[in-house]
């Protein structure tokens, strides 16, 4: 893949995200795996999560503010409900799904947390649900005579 080329003109002048916010977003990614019990140890995905955030900000400078807002919202939720319940609230509150997002919580759910869920599934979270490949997962080339990167009829029939 070629390096990222697309950039919003305003994104070029933005200061990079603080480490504290990047770390908080990484923690959000970790919590997705805990909540849905689909990735035990996500550490190998950390560089991908960081580059994902950089790419989002490069395309749309608003994402820098979305991540800053998400950090504040998550802090408040964890302070109010504790870690487990706080994330539970973020991942499941139906009000946070109302469109267009009109509250900091809804912005955090729709622009940050749900996007991380999609990314988390694509980097491997889908495997917990029975499949070998997934739309967005870089499964690998099909090389005749090597294992096929998705579940096939033939392999299944052969047991």
């Amino acid at each position: 893949m070629q390096p990222t080329k697309s950039q919003h003109p305003l994104s070029a002048t933005l200061a990079p995200l603080d480490d504290a916010i990047r770390d908080a977003m990484w923690e959000l990614f970790v919590q997705i795996g805990k909540f849905w019990k689909n990735i035990d140890d996500p550490s190998e995905h950390k560089p991908r999560v960081y580059s994902f955030m950089e790419n989002r900000i490069a395309l749309d400078p608003m994402y820098r503010d979305y991540y800053i807002t998400a950090n504040n919202v998550i802090k408040q939720l964890v302070d109010q409900y504790g870690e487990v319940e706080g994330y539970h609230h973020l991942f499941t509150d139906p009000d946070a799904m109302k469109s267009p997002p009109a509250t900091p919580l809804a912005l955090t759910r729709q622009k940050v947390s749900n996007e991380f869920v999609s990314l988390q599934l694509a980097v491997g979270g889908f495997k917990a649900f029975g499949a070998k490949n997934y739309c967005g997962f870089i499964g690998g080339a099909y090389v005749p005579s090597a294992p096929v990167p998705y579940r096939t009829m033939e392999n299944h029939d052969a047991g």
Partner: peptide, 19 residues
């Protein structure tokens, strides 16, 4: 249209929007 671009690809992956 810019093709083979990682940011545009990830945008499609998480939003379904195409450039």
């Amino acid at each position: 249209v810019m093709t083979r671009d990682s940011a545009l690809w990830e945008n499609y992956l998480v939003t379904g929007n195409l450039p």
